[in-house]
Amino acid sequence: MSAEPTLLAPAVAAPLPLGRTLAARLLRNPVVALGAGFLLLMALVGALAPVLGTLDPTAINPATRNRPPGFERTIRAEDGTTTTYRHRMGTDSLGRDVYSRVLYGARISLLIAVSVAALSLAIGLLLGLVAGYIRPLDGPIMRLMDGLMAIPGILLAIAVVSLFRAGLPAVIAAIVVPEIPRVVRLVRSIVLSVREEPYVEAAIMAGTRLPLLMARHILPNTVAPLIVQGTFIAASAILVEAVLSFLGIGIPPETPSWGNIMAEGRNLFRVYPHNILYPGIFLGLTVLAVNMLGDGLRDTLDPKMTGR
């Protein structure tokens, strides 16, 4: 080997695994598979709630209030026929079926998780790119973010909710706002380090315009960390929604969410724990699954973290 071979050296390894191979690699990680599997199950439960043997989650029945799990009641339909319905998780203090409420509640929790993650990533990404690449705007944006971070998330959320009428959009906005600064910081730090890379400078020398430069050379570096960050935001969004609803400033009680089911069960918790127990189990398992997914993604996407 007196000289470097003029033609190609044998290929060292497969090209960067993106797309299909990446998905395959992710699913080989049992933590990712388990987390993703459980979330898929929850999504199905939420979507198929009407056909999973549920009643109208808002139907009040004063005759059967605060019944324990397993209580059976006879429902008389309008044509006079009767059926026996079993309240698997009991009923709440207004006689509503907890099982139905918990299943319908999955819709709200997952909807909030996904929309909060998507919105905070989108807004954070935009602000982070601007702060990281357009130097004069860096200071103002980051000081604003520092200001937001200085206020405890829950307090900020309460303040945001109080500005709007209570409802799903207000709750989502309330959870998104405190999450944005963390995303902005993450994106900005990536942009700051990547913009110094020689390949970015080479692209500048090649006359690539700023939007294309961002999309082609800088943005791809943020994808993996943002996916990971997104899962953690989703987990915290589910919790914060529960907290807000529990405090009575979240989703209005006519729409069941795990948080407001628990809020309503709070007064009689000592006597009828099932009102808090079942939504609590669903909430806990879902957050755990999201976190597992996030941890698994981080380990797989970030080679520096593997082997810990």
């Binding site: 020689p198 080479a202 082609r216 791809p220």
Partner: peptide, 12 residues
């Protein structure tokens, strides 16, 4: 540039 390992975008 100096560093042959960083002067080409690894994703392209």
């Amino acid at each position: 540039f100096q560093d042959p390992f960083r002067s080409l975008n690894p994703r392209r």
